[in-house]
């Protein structure tokens, strides 16, 4: 008899499946889980650092964390767009190298620095556009197209110069790294900020707006969910995918400006492995590598986790800096596995 009852209780055609409150909330927001994990890790790292080495939670450390990782945040934002559509951009690190070497050389050659800055950004856009065209119109797999762009940009950078190129001291581009004291703390413990950090914050805000408040952004998510469905829904899939790579390239250009301004020099080997850092930041922040789910703010947290990791490694002194890439790679793998687990849970 009981079987009959349960049969009658089957949900009728127009009702959603019912589940318990918390369970349902968790299921509905499983996508947030990795982001929470990243946030927890970030907090745990701060606590650990504070206990083990001290002087983590103080204005100067926080300021340095932001200033030193502004470029990574910008890169991660760009990559978030690409990965949300289910694509990848491996060229960002090399694009930074080319853009910044070209920028420094042109500035030192006496070009108008503001024009050079715009040019540096546009160099990034151009690489992104080429990747996008290769992917969208010639069916080249994203990783192949952007890998080719990576080699191309790196090669072009080496053609320009193979030695560190120093930005002239009086160049206005250095102004982007001027430190403004927000809070004048005791001794050197000041809360400072640079235009580079402000650029990063603006980039993040614009990205959040684009992704969550425009039809373009919704299409980005839809493509990541199912490109086929998006096409059948009549969404502008082609132009959106093209734009996504242009955005990623452009932001690589912006990152090049910010980084060059801070460092005051550029070299053809700048940015080796940054694509991995950016991918790791994005993935740690909760963006699914398969696309369709994730948040720009998560990627920001991811970038800061990596930045803080570097701080802790430096403070520790016992860990060799060479191991950084190994640790980053390891973290990336762990988070990808976590994503797999969550995805298979969601599929039930």
């Amino acid at each position: 008899m009981s079987t009959v009852t349960s049969f009658d209780n089957r949900p009728t055609s127009v009702e959603p499946k019912r589940e318990g409150g918390p369970a349902r909330w968790l299921k509905a927001h499983l996508g947030l889980l990795p982001t929470f994990a990243a946030l927890l890790i970030f907090l745990a790292m701060i606590v650990y650092g504070e206990i083990a080495y001290g002087r983590i939670l103080q204005a100067s450390t926080v300021s340095n964390l932001l200033i030193n990782n502004a470029h990574l945040v910008i890169l991660a934002v760009g990559l978030t767009f690409v990965i949300l559509t289910g694509g990848i951009d491996l060229s960002v690190g090399a694009v930074i190298a080319f853009s910044s070497v070209a920028g420094v050389l042109l500035t030192n050659a006496g070009w108008n620095p503001w024009f050079v800055i715009v040019l540096m950004v546009l160099i990034g856009s151009l690489f992104g556009l080429i990747s996008g065209v290769l992917i969208q119109f010639f069916d080249v797999q994203p990783f192949i197209a952007t890998l080719a762009m990576m080699f191309l940009a790196r090669g072009l950078a080496s053609m320009l110069s193979t030695t560190p190129e120093r930005l002239a001291d009086e160049s206005p581009m250095r102004g982007l790294a001027t430190q403004f004291k927000l809070v004048d703390g005791p001794r050197v413990n000041d809360l400072v900020i640079t235009p580079g950090v402000i650029i990063a914050v603006v980039v993040v805000l614009v990205a959040v707006f684009l992704l969550h408040r425009t039809r373009f952004g919704r299409t980005v998510y839809a493509i990541g969910g199912s490109e086929q469905s998006s096409t059948l829904m009549g969404l502008p899939v082609v132009s959106t995918k093209l734009w996504v790579y242009v955005i990623s390239g452009t932001l690589a250009g912006v990152a090049a400006v910010v980084y060059t301004a801070r460092l005051g020099s550029a070299q053809n080997i700048t940015g080796i492995g940054w694509e991995l850092d950016a991918i790791a930041a994005t993935v740690i922040g909760g963006t699914l590598l398969m696309g369709g789910a994730g948040f720009v703010l998560g990627s920001v947290v991811g970038a800061l986790v990596l930045g803080l990791m570097n701080v802790l490694i430096t403070r520790d002194g016992g860990i060799r800096p060479e191991t950084t890439t190994i640790i980053t790679g390891g973290i990336l793998l762990v988070f990808v596995l976590l994503q797999r687990a969550v995805a298979s849970r969601r599929r039930e």
Partner: peptide, 10 residues
């Protein structure tokens, strides 16, 4: 052919 990573309303 919908996107099941998005909400109903979206």
């Amino acid at each position: 052919n919908l996107c099941d990573n998005l909400t109903i309303g979206e």
